[in-house]
Design a binder for these strands. Structure first.
Length: 741
DNA sequence: GTTATACTTTGGGCA
DNA sequence: AAAGTATAAC
């Protein structure tokens, strides 16, 4: 046990060995948070204070849960099996499956991911002939999720205006639809579980009695409902003399980056107040990053207001300067990154210790292309994730229909895929009938007469045959059989671009085999036919698949900043540091949004151990359009002495920007997309040496970027994005424009 | 009525 | 760029 506590600093030691009371650990980036959490669990168990079955540990990502389990089994001589470790959603799924009857759900309920949910809402709007211009599906989705996260069922929502009243009605209909189809969305997983525990005393008491220590990772990212869920589980029960559980919450308000999905940083303060937390421990010593990187992170986050306050420090030296690179275009940026990566590898770095981070998934393509051309192995996390690909979703839809024929979302997805002559019209008729009979689409088919009825009946027979033929098959063979009999394989075989999709379908079989292998221990306990299938489907929804190529290979890591939270790398490249991209344009206008972007930047910077590379491009292809962005304000927030600018090779004829040094930032400017598609650049002599993408200054409007140019001679004019001052067309002969360095 | 094709619109991060 | 929508062709 003394081994366990060796090498912990004073604060870490204190946190790990706290008496059984509520505790809040404010853990800065790289301060050994995961270590404290796992060591705490190991210490509780090995000191005999708690049985493994008394531990409940909640994380936010499956990755984090897995890592915690791995570390624990390395630390403890005993099995980790009795512990409950998982994500909120994963644990709720487990509870609901175990108590499905009490929760009012069939055992084989399905889980909708956000895309499924959106599709279900669109279908709902269609059935009720709702104008989707007035009620945009995405907005309605957000509304419904927000209500659920506030713990509100339709009856409890207060609606003061007609618009909201209508949305509440649609919320109610959505619930009915989900219940009828036996599907549950992410927010519902949480709310259902919460209600189950709240209303069902025996069940609640059972878990309250069982869990003695509840440990929460990334507490700053919990939403209101998750917090209430924790409160309920941790509460004692005076009547039966059950003492409450100890809540051990670890978080960092500066790393709260999930406000968009309802995370409530205020939970940290509420927790401290409501539980009268006497033990608040700050972990401020950083073991990860060199001084320059840490100073940069501290300087950036200082621009935010209302922080709980923390200052990271390190015993390590300043280390290397932060390298900053300005590229002309996104592909130049990618090329430069690849060259630097190659250099690092030549110097002996492991590829897997190098991460390429970006704000949004769309940015990964250019990087992937450059890496691929250079023959560097890489691995992309997130993005179009495995279980979200269309061919996989189609295959899963067939599997879902086998497990649960009432799943209308799955039905609608594949009833005419591959095409079998069931178009929009037939489907509409079926939906109409389904409403009158109040049955699922599948169950309605026998009621339908006429030609469409025949074709539909054939589809139903196909599903029924599948269900019968696969009942005794092992999961991978079941999937294989479905791929063939559904015609999916044949369809993609015939398609020109279908090869990759076919490979992915084969991957699905592999994923099924993998799933069986991993859950083998539990498999014997499942009695019902296709129960393992239902488990696999839940797995597919909850864990959309870290399923990139060769697992074991030493590969460069590509991911969004969100996905990088909790991870660390020797070298980190953060690309696309441009206004509109990072900070993202949708977040720029609201103060709250901007602060969240800044926290995201803080997270990104603190991922790096030794080297940090920051880059941006003057022009970038995004959504099929070339955009010209100003550099990110976050770059300006890093003190100059910490950085070293790297000069890009100068293309012929262009005025240099950012040459060799640090230049005065265009304060307060923000970018926007060009009002008109950029015109072809006129001959250079007409623009007086100016170029699209260049930074210029104007006496009245200040600094801006040229986003388009047209005309020639006396008519030559350029369109300039002046940020705050707006976008203007200026005649070159009239306006005095100064190239800006 | 269904399917193939041209055109228009949209657009973030995640369990 | 990809998904969604209107229109023409089967």
């Amino acid at each position: 046990m003394s081994d366990l506590l060796a090498n912990l600093n004073t604060e870490q030691h204190q946190a790990v060995t706290l008496p059984p009371q509520h505790a809040l650990i404010l853990a800065g980036a790289g301060s050994g948070k995961t270590r404290v959490l796992t060591t705490r669990i190991a210490w509780l168990i090995s000191s005999g204070q708690c049985d493994p079955a008394g531990i409940l540990a909640v994380t936010f990502t499956n990755k984090a849960a897995k890592e915690m389990l791995a570390r624990l089994s390395a630390m403890l001589p005993i099995s980790t099996r009795g512990m409950w470790i998982g994500t909120f959603h994963g644990l709720c799924n487990r509870l609901l499956r175990a108590h499905h009857r009490d929760a009012g759900l069939p055992q084989l309920f399905q889980i909708l991911d956000s895309a499924d949910q959106l599709a279900a809402i669109k279908r709902l709007l269609k059935t009720f002939n709702v104008d989707d211009e007035k009620f945009p599906p995405r907005e309605l989705q957000h509304f419904i999720n927000a209500q659920k996260e506030a713990g509100l069922r339709p009856d409890a929502v207060e609606a003061w205006d007609d618009y909201t009243r209508r949305r509440v009605e649609l919320y109610r209909e959505y619930e009915t639809q989900c219940q009828r189809e036996s599907v549950v969305d992410f927010a519902e997983l949480l709310l259902r579980t919460y209600e189950l525990l709240e209303r069902n005393e025996p069940v609640r008491r059972h878990y309250q009695r069982r869990f003695r220590h509840i440990l929460v990772d990334e507490f700053q990212d919990t939403n209101r409902l998750q917090y209430r869920w924790l409160k309920l589980l941790a509460a004692g029960d005076a009547a039966s003399g059950t003492p409450g559980a100890c809540l051990f919450c670890v978080g960092d308000d500066d790393q709260s980056i999930y406000r968009f999905r309802g995370a409530e940083v205020g939970n940290m303060r509420d927790f401290e107040r409501e539980f009268q937390v006497a033990n608040v421990i700050r972990l401020e010593q950083n073991y990860r990053s060199h001084g320059n990187i840490l100073d940069a992170a501290n300087a950036i986050i200082r621009h935010n207001s209302g922080r709980l306050g923390k200052n990271l420090w390190t015993e390590q030296g300043a280390g290397e300067p932060i390298r900053v690179f300005e590229a002309f275009g996104d592909s130049d940026e990618a090329r430069w990154i690849v060259e630097e990566v190659q250099q690092l590898v030549r110097e002996g770095a492991l590829r897997s210790d190098i991460a390429l981070l970006y704000r949004s998934n769309a940015q990964s393509r250019v990087l992937e292309h450059a890496l691929f051309s250079a023959g560097i192995p890489y691995r992309v996390y997130g993005g179009l994730r495995f279980f979200e690909r269309q061919e996989i979703k189609h295959a899963l839809a067939y599997l879902r229909l086998i497990a649960n024929a009432d799943d209308d979302t799955a039905f609608a997805r594949v009833v005419n895929f591959p095409t079998r002559g069931i178009g929009a019209r037939s489907l509409e008729a079926l939906q109409e009938a389904a409403r009158t009979y109040n049955t699922s689409l599948y169950a309605t088919v026998p009621h339908l007469a006429g030609k469409p009825g025949t074709v539909l009946a054939q589809f139903v027979r196909l599903i029924e045959d599948l269900r019968r033929d696969t009942a005794r098959l092992p999961l991978p063979e079941l999937v294989d059989h479905v791929l063939d009999s559904s015609g999916l394989r044949a369809h993609y075989k015939a398609e020109k671009e279908g090869r990759e999709r076919l490979e992915n379908l084969d991957e699905l079989i592999a994923a099924a085999a993998n799933f069986v292998a991993e859950s083998q221990a539990d498999a014997g306990a499942l009695g019902a036919d296709h129960a393992l299938l239902a488990d696999f489907l839940a797995h597919a929804s909850l864990e959309a698949g870290e399923h990139q190529a060769d697992q074991g290979m030493d590969a460069v890591q590509l991911m969004t900043v969100h996905a990088a939270k909790g991870l660390e790398f020797d070298a980190v490249f953060l690309s696309g540091l441009e206004e509109g991209l990072f900070p993202h344009e949708n977040a720029i206008l609201e103060a709250e949004g901007l602060e969240e972007e800044r926290r995201l930047m803080y997270v990104a910077v603190t991922r790096a151990r030794q080297r940090l590379y920051l880059s941006f491009a003057q022009s970038r292809m995004l959504h099929g359009q070339t955009r010209y962005n100003l550099r990110s304000r976050f770059l300006e927030e890093i003190p100059e002495p910490l950085t070293r600018w790297i000069t890009p090779p100068k293309p012929r004829g262009s005025a240099a920007t950012g040459f060799g040094g640090y230049y005065e930032p265009p304060r307060g400017a923000f970018s926007s997309r060009p009002a008109a598609p950029p015109a072809p650049v006129p001959p250079r002599k007409n623009t007086g040496g100016l170029q699209v993408g260049q930074l210029v200054s104007h006496a009245r409007f200040g600094k801006g970027v040229i986003i388009a140019a047209e005309g020639s001679g006396a008519d030559a004019r350029v369109q300039i994005n002046f940020g705050d001052a707006g976008i203007k067309w200026l005649l070159l002969g009239v306006a005095k424009l100064e190239p800006c360095n």
